[in-house]
Design a protein around this nucleic acid. Sequence first.
DNA 1: ACTTTTATGCAATATTATTGCAAAAAAGTA
DNA 2: TACTTTTTTGCAATAATATTGCATAAAAGT
Lengths: 141, 141
Amino acid sequence: MRYSDYKKVLKKHHLRITDSRIDVLERFYNTIHALSFKDLEDQLEGYDRVTLYRTLNSFIDQGIIHRIPNDTGSACYGICFETCTPEQHYHNHIHFKCIKCGYIDCLPDTHIPLIDLPGYEIIDSNLIINGICKDCKKNAN
Amino acid sequence: MRYSDYKKVLKKHHLRITDSRIDVLERFYNTIHALSFKDLEDQLEGYDRVTLYRTLNSFIDQGIIHRIPNDTGSACYGICFETCTPEQHYHNHIHFKCIKCGYIDCLPDTHIPLIDLPGYEIIDSNLIINGICKDCKKNAN
DNA sequence: ACTTTTATGCAATATTATTGCAAAAAAGTA
DNA sequence: TACTTTTTTGCAATAATATTGCATAAAAGT
């Protein structure tokens, strides 16, 4: 993806073209893992922390990225595949968190099984699977 | 449950009997929802924040409670059903988070469907379903 | 009753996230 | 392009969440 493509993504999601948005977007498109705030902060020196937080929030609001629940306390963010709009996030892929390398990956070809919960109204669901990823299994021996 | 029962729980999990552990345990047994740190702090005045954090951590280590991932950044804790030991947490029930009242509930009679992820080694999984709980549906009209 | 081990409270510090506001940059318009 | 309006940025301050070290207190073991 090139600068002009990132611009298109931002335009499509009704966001102004700014340096930090282009750079953050580039990080998401060129990283196979989900990114934490800290990842972005380390990789994008020069921007104020506040700017990065606001950039992430604008992306979430506009359906460019989604927040991935995490029991460690610090949120992670994954890029949304084609389906999300400013009106609603539509993704129900599984997230995998590797306990060795710590990376969280979106598994785009998976989907969370439908669950029937009588009496409850289900809006969406998050499935995070913990385990050991392919790379870490390979490197184990 | 009475004081003597809470004592038994703590003993079974190799923890000393202290006031804060008894009181925190009581809160978990007498609350149908999962509890956040803030909930406990509000409900158990008189204990230092640090003591409450350490009490929660000792409960997690010993398999009395489990941490529930939460995309808001502040962790929630649910009590473990009979199955957990200091060696390993064994629970794979579904968690339900109501977007109206904000409460997270453990659904003890459910279980997370087994997922097959070729190449990955799965250790455990967390499924959090967001929606509207029975109570809030009832109160809606 | 005494000793050993563990937990608690306090103070300090670290980490993560948000807000207000003036200056800078982007987008819209003539 | 020059000008205006709107939004974004950086800085400083502050809030919210979590951890550590250490002396004292309490629990458990003998």
